Amino acid sequence: MSTDSSQYLSASGVDSAEAEGRAHRDQRHDRWFRRGMFGAAMLVLLLLAGVAGSTLWGGSLAFSTFGLDFLTSTEWDAVNNHFGALVPIYGTLVTSLLALLIAVPVSFGIAIFLTEVAPPWLRMPVAAAIELLAGIPSIIYGMWGLFIFGPFMAEHLAPWINDYLGALPLIGGLFQGPPLGIGMLSAGIVLAIMIIPFITSVMNEVFRSVPITLKESAYALGNTTWEVVWDVVLPYTRSAVVGGIFLGLGRALGETMAVTFVLGNSQQFSASLLMPSSSIASVIANEFSEAYTDLHRSSLIALGFLLFVVTFIVLAIARLMLLRLAKKEGL
């Protein structure tokens, strides 16, 4: 064998050994990477289970003392140690649903305006205003609601609502009440203002992701802007739109400070939207520092567990809806 051939085989052997060593290192690093990512995912599940388990354990005294009566009772009497969660649960759900009813149409209109109607010189200022609203702390919304919107509601909106909407058949009782300015309707409006930026941002991004050729084809066939939005944009993005709506709902369910300022923090059950009420988060924020008995403290922790369960159910419903929409789109 010649000297050149020996050198070639020797170099080939070195290159092959280096390549094999590099492949082993890559495989080892890939295993470490996979294990790290798996650990991060499991950490989220462990944290979720830890929060649920700790709140359930902390509220076990209340659940064992009152049983199902804790979910159905409207009495919240810290003096006599009798607690029921129906009023906070009702207030949380009603204010969040009111916020969603107000915020979704407004967010949809803003997103359509930004993507389909607004001139280029106006899009940036409106988008910047949306981002600014999203960055305002919740306590600022609460103070604005208490000192500015509350008096305006009491002086102008509440009397009109009581006189005209309160006279409607069947649903008139929802709009009857004194012009206090604080209550479930005020809290729902403030919450709507808070979640509008989040829902709008999601809708704006997904509407911008629609291929321009689809919209141009629809316009070329003579469709109006509304027809393009309803028949092209929404079917293409409905899964993401539903996800954004439930993201806003989750934000509304857990809001504390803004709701605490404008909801009234009353433990009296009332179907009227003009009457004060309480939410789970506001009750915890108001009373936790004053809970001197074990049963009172356990009842507040039990409320936290119920809020966790309500939020989990809402997000689970959102996930199921998204899966169903994805299956329909696949068909």
Rank of each mutant, 00 (worst) to 15 (best):
I245Q: 05
V206A: 07
G244W: 06
T224E: 00
T225S: 06
M203S: 06
W230L: 06
N204R: 12
Y219Q: 08
A218E: 09
N223C: 09
K215P: 00
F246R: 00
Y219P: 00
W230C: 04
S209T: 11
L221T: 13
L247E: 01
I212W: 10
E205V: 10
F207G: 01
P211K: 00
T213Y: 05
S217W: 02
V229I: 07
S217V: 04
V202D: 14
S239L: 12
T224Q: 03
T225A: 06
E205F: 08
P235M: 02
I245V: 06
G243S: 10
S201A: 13
L247N: 03
S201Q: 14
F207H: 01
I212Q: 14
D231W: 12
D231Y: 15
N204Q: 13
T225L: 08
V228H: 01
G244C: 07
N223K: 14
L221C: 11
W230S: 09
P211I: 06
S201F: 13
S209Q: 14
F207K: 04
V202Y: 12
V206I: 13
F207P: 02
V206M: 09
S217P: 10
G244L: 05
A240V: 04
V229Y: 04
A240R: 09
A220G: 15
G222V: 11
L247H: 03
V229F: 13
A218C: 05
K215V: 02
M203R: 04
A218V: 05
G243F: 02
L234Y: 02
V233R: 03
L221Y: 09
V242D: 11
V210G: 02
S217G: 06
S209G: 12
L221N: 10
T237I: 11
V202M: 15
L214A: 12
F207T: 01
N223F: 07
V206W: 07
V206N: 12
S217D: 08
K215F: 03
E216M: 08
I212D: 14
F207S: 01
E227Q: 15
A218M: 10
M203C: 02
I245S: 03
A220C: 08
N204G: 05
L234P: 00
V229E: 02
V210R: 05
W226F: 11
N204T: 13
T225E: 12
T237Y: 07
G244I: 07
G222S: 11
L214V: 12
A240H: 11
R238L: 08
D231N: 13
T225R: 12
